[in-house]
Design a protein around this nucleic acid. Structure first.
Lengths: 216, 216, 216, 216
DNA sequence: TATGAATGAGAGTTCATTCAT
DNA sequence: GATGAATGAACTCTCATTCAT
């Protein structure tokens, strides 16, 4: 997460005890994500979030300044899970190509695991003031750099054509996000693992220099 | 657009004069799209839409049953421009590959032309009741079939690998949509025409059977 | 109708032709009575009244100043039918007792014929300004005097006990009105003719001086 | 009151504390009855009801789901006072005839005490959906059975002629209600106590088998 | 800390009435 | 005379936020 996240978070709460703050906030945000994803941000009331978290309405405002804060926290929560789980999936992967494949698959899997929340980020980021939108976009970029790094490595080793890293990265990102964005369509046609392997196939055909040896 | 669109639209207005209804509605929807795209659906008031259209609040309800109707009309307006402009761009394109390229470029250009409105569709479709969401998704599918048809033709002629049409279609769709969804990012790096040509390059590398001859 | 009804009515219309005014107004009021009775005065829109009368909204205001005027006219319409039909029913009735019986029955029958409209008068008179309420009450009194007259005659001839005319009159009035006011109840138990004869029986038992001879 | 009243009432409030709910609701309804009776249901705004109760507009909706609920509660409030006060007036009355007289008088007195509210019930019941209208009519029937019981007893003991209980009951009911419905007329002519005794006289003359001994 | 009753501004929607045609 | 599109005030209901307890 960007270095000033904690700064932002700090300003939100009126409570001293840092441990309790973190724990409570996690509980509140978990409920908020679920409700916002299900019903939309604007249609969800702070009362509902409080009930979902098992606390009183007023107490929510001890951990959050605004309903808007709740949204920011919810979206950051999703992005954070990307930033945590993708690197985790890379452990044990050897060689740039393997790391690339693993990243691709990992991204798709996180999106699948947090499908509704991913949609939330797409739908509701714009409900935040510009400054906070930028904050979220920065967080997204951080994950993107993980992917870009893998692709760069493959190019450096001559495995991939020398394409524009940025565009290739977004091919991966959008493919993963599409699993959430167009899930209503894909769910009727395929399953996650096929989606991943077909996507990888497409991606590698587009980039590999020596198809014959590496795709299969 | 699905055959029963007119049915849905008809039920919305309380005014008899069909010509006036169409004209006024166009004016109202134009403003609504702009405002919804700018501020979000929920944050935009019907009063604002009325003011933007230069009419009174009450009059809006002569042409629309609901604020929700306003949203449906706004989203359909975008999808309709896809369905109109993509086929138009195909005129004069000869041969499946040329048609494929033309479609790809056309889609990106429509999305660019209606960038904000495309975002609106992504953000706010979920604010509609399920039945109407389906209606929108159907409209989207219709455009997708245009793309799928081109790809199928290329496969039939042996130009493309025999990939899953559906997935390849969504590669195109998502690439075009990404120009709107991630515009905040791309705008700093590239322009529409480069975006299109680089995307096509990626897409064709992934699908063409005989790269040497056809890509460059 | 009271002598100044025409004065009131005159002020309502902006149209010169007295014949047309009367005819149109009758059509408008007929629809208004039906709609007001069915849905209530406040829930009925002037637009609906216009549609029911087969004319445009604006035209209603040529024959009526106000929506309120529409209500006044509607209620007067009911009272007028009382004032017309009750005397009509007395024709041919001979002797005070026969006239009393005829009046009693006639009132019940008019109420039955205009049941919904009678309810309208009960429900909505209070929606009018005090002055107009008084106007309606005066109209009602006129009918009441018809009844009072019959009772007085019976007393004068020694057929009835010398009771308070006013109270006895209201016994009749309320009994007739009850057929409308409590119709939801009576309709399950009896029919109009039984209702009338049982009511008469009760009434005559209460008033006749010589029961043995006259009731059966 | 019907056994499921509490069920209906329960669903109306969003506040847990049952004691507070009851107290507040009583305050709100008291004001609502006054205002509805004075100005009519449709003409009274929820804001006015709130102001009358000394609370904010929003708070009204913590104790009531709808403006319509407010009306239902208001009407039930009147009927409830009938159901409470009439039996109370019977205490100490001995013998069927005395009980009958007491009931008659009690009903007239409750109507007098809640005259405006009685009118409200007559005027505005139809503003409720059919199901709730039935609910109110049921409540009314309960009171009517009290009256019917007294009359039946008098018949059983040979004091009254064997008339139709139902019709005799409604004679009483309508006479009492008439004190409210036609108060604008009676108030100029008589007072409550005379109204009661003259009404009783009429009623007993109509029903008693042995007039000579019991009326005076 | 924690509660949840209380606030009140603000949104969507309706409809009596007008007036240009 | 006749139309019906247009107006905009007014009403019901919601909900983020506060604060006495």
């Amino acid at each position: 997460m960007p270095s000033d996240t904690s700064q932002i978070l700090k300003g939100m709460s009126r409570t001293a005890d840092a441990g309790l703050v973190k724990e409570r906030r996690a509980k509140i945000v978990a409920g908020a994500v679920r409700l916002f994803a299900e019903q939309g941000y604007e249609r969800t009331t702070v009362q509902e979030v409080a009930r979902e978290a098992g606390i009183s309405t007023g107490l929510v405002y001890q951990y959050v300044r605004d309903k808007e804060d709740l949204l920011l926290l919810s979206i950051l929560d999703v992005l954070e899970s990307y930033a945590t789980e993708i690197p985790a999936a890379l452990e044990g992967a050897e060689g740039p190509l393997q790391r690339c494949r693993a990243t691709f698959a990992a991204y798709c899997r996180v999106v699948d695991a947090r499908r509704e929340a991913t949609l939330l980020a797409y739908r509701s980021t714009y409900s935040l003031p510009p400054e906070r939108q930028r904050f979220i976009k920065d967080a997204e970029q951080k994950t993107n750099r993980l992917i870009g790094g893998c692709i760069q490595d493959c190019i450096d080793e001559g495995l991939f054509r020398p394409v524009d890293i940025d565009l290739a990265t977004y091919q991966v990102v959008m493919y993963a996000h599409a699993w959430a964005l167009k899930h209503w369509h894909f769910v009727k046609r395929t399953d996650l693992e096929s989606y991943i392997s077909e996507g990888l196939d497409f991606f590698l055909h587009a980039l590999l220099t020596d198809l014959g040896r590496k795709v299969p």
